[in-house]
Design a binder for these strands. Structure first.
Length: 511
RNA sequence: GGCGCUAUCGUCUAGGGGUUAGGACGUGAGAUUCUCAAUCUCAAAACCCGGGUUCGAUUCCCGGUAGCGCUACCA
């Protein structure tokens, strides 16, 4: 390591989505860098061009920024060790591979895929570790060079010597493999592109990476990489291997488990601070063993690699929801209202762009239903009582319908509806204060109070047996009815007229 | 098949040779409210199995089992 300064990197393949496992790896790298006032580097591993498209990289960067991370060096911002795309570093990889051949530490291999496959199957059948036999290992260098010059396709393999490959893992402690299980693996493919285990090492060394924090699926790759470091005489970085994130069925979390990518969570309306907090808690805990709510800033202060768990963790959407509810309560209503717009538009409730008046009204809507939400995507559903009122549908809902047809309920409505209708007509709407005066009057006339009084009124007004407080809903109805929305919101007067028009309540207005 | 990693409530975890094994999510009950929710209170819920070491193991060691990963000219 050429520097004492902590330098870590996140090196994803741009595949079109950022899996939460990768997001957590990125987060832990970032936290470690920030904790030690070091550098966090973004490097794109795009050697496999079939899977890499420019737009994937753009999306990857956007997703990571949304997630709350920033980096000191990367493909979008450059830096002293550019380029930061693996595909643009292939010349360097080739030069290093050839250098190893010159020094007799690597060699050209002319075996065909068919030959290798046959070898592999034979080894497997014999119950042996299926590793490369070393057939091309002893070919004289001149002969190999001649074949290459003739244009024969050749890969480059590392000459593995008998050795133990051990390291002190920052998460797992001392870990090691015998060279028996490795075999002379590929450095450079016959198409000239580097293999992953070679390219990462060359790039990490060139970028002076001091700590490699990555998923534990790379544990078995580590001895190969150590072999490369050893061949070059480089000092390897420290390694920290993070456990896998599993789905509820204990298999590796994948797309079929539902929301698993940053994009998924953003679309759901999960707040990034909730997701970083949750992911930090998945496999890491604070030193007091109790604290769970952490902003990114607090996480930077508290984070340490030695408090990372070794065992795999199952992703729990419920706990993420809990954190998201927590952070939604902390967020400004304006921010939440803006985040809810796409879902509301999709539901046909809103037309964009939303005016300032609509946004201000939306804040009240968010405020009214927030307690019922796990994430913002659920807002249209939770706000249905505001946007959709249909007295006829109410009449088809047997439970609710039966309730308000009880004699007591009919009595309450018989008094309430005409009073409220008159007030709304006379005053051009109904304030909550006025609404309360009317309910008090109804209470005097009927002797009903509490649930007996309010439940029928709620049903008549909202069409539903449950929902936000009427204190919040009534002003929302009234103000909403004055706004130009994707779907007109009915005011109190309109709702009661619709209700009174139901045949079953035909007499209610005159009662 | 070989190699490796892992194992505390349903889930995320704390802890550690002697503890009433702690917290959180979720669940259940109660309180409160016009309802749902939110909130508050309470409750149920765990050391994978078998050996060893030890006066004593959930904790340390070994084995088993299970889960996961790697075993590529994928990354």
């Amino acid at each position: 390591m050429a520097t004492d300064r902590v330098r870590v990197r996140f090196a994803p393949s741009p595949t079109g989505y950022v899996h939460v496992g990768n997001a957590r790896t990125a987060l832990f790298n970032w936290l470690f860098a920030r904790r030690h006032k070091g550098d966090f580097i973004l490097r794109i591993e795009d050697t496999d061009v079939a899977r890499s498209e420019a737009r994937y990289e753009t999306q990857l960067i956007a997703d990571l920024r949304w997630f709350g991370l920033d980096w000191d060096e990367g493909p979008d911002i450059g830096g002293p060790f550019a380029p930061y795309r693996q595909s643009e570093r292939h010349k360097l990889h080739r030069r290093h591979a050839l250098d190893l051949i010159d020094r007799g530490l690597a060699y050209f291999c002319f075996c065909t895929p068919e030959e290798l496959e046959a070898e592999r199957e034979a080894a497997l059948k014999a119950g042996n570790q299926p590793k490369y036999s070393g057939r091309c290992r002893t070919r004289p260098r001149e002969e190999a060079a001649r074949k290459v010059a003739e244009g024969q396709p050749a890969s480059v393999r590392l000459r593995i010597r008998e050795a133990e490959f051990a390291w002190d893992d920052l998460v797992h402690g001392s870990t090691g493999f015998s060279s028996e299980v490795i075999g002379d693996f590929i450095l450079l493919r016959s198409d000239g592109n580097p293999a992953y285990n070679f390219a990462v090492v060359v790039d990490d060394e060139a970028m002076q990476i001091t700590h490699v924090i990555r998923g534990d699926d790379h544990i078995s790759n580590t001895p190969r990489q150590l072999a490369v470091y050893r061949a070059f005489g480089w000092t390897p970085p420290r390694f920290a291997h993070l456990s896998t994130i599993l789905g509820t069925d204990r298999t590796r979390l994948s797309k079929r488990h539902g929301a698993t990518s940053l994009e998924n969570f953003r679309e759901m309306g999960i707040l990034p601070e909730a997701l970083t907090n949750y992911l930090a808690l998945l496999g890491w805990s604070a030193s007091d063993g109790v604290s769970e709510i952490f902003s990114l800033e607090n996480l930077v202060e508290e984070f340490s690699l030695d408090r990372i768990t070794k065992s795999p963790a199952i992703f729990d959407q419920e706990k993420l929801n809990w954190l998201n509810r927590h952070y939604m309560k902390e967020a400004s209503l304006r921010r939440l209202a803006e985040l809810a717009i796409p879902a509301l538009e999709e539901a046909g409730y809103l037309s964009v762009p939303a005016s300032e008046a609509v946004l201000a009204w939306l804040e009240r809507v968010v405020d009214a239903v927030l307690k019922n939400l796990d994430y913002l995507r659920q807002l249209p559903q939770a706000a249905k009582v505001i946007f959709e009122y249909d007295a006829r549908i109410l009449a088809e809902n047997s439970d609710t319908w039966t309730e308000i047809n009880e004699p007591g309920a009919r009595e309450v409505l018989g008094h309430f509806v005409p009073l409220a209708l008159d007030a709304a007509a006379a005053e051009g709407g109904l304030t909550y204060a006025r609404f309360r005066e009317i309910t008090k009057e109804v209470q005097r006339q009927t002797g009903k109070k509490g649930r007996e009084l309010f439940h029928p009124i709620r049903v008549a007004l909202t069409g539903a047996a449950s929902g936000p407080e009427l204190e919040k809903l009534i002003p929302i109805f009234e103000e909403g009815s004055k706004l130009a929305l994707g779907r007109p919101v009915k005011g109190v007067g309109q709702r009661l007229r619709d209700f009174a028009a139901l045949p079953a309540f035909a007499g209610v207005k005159e009662a």
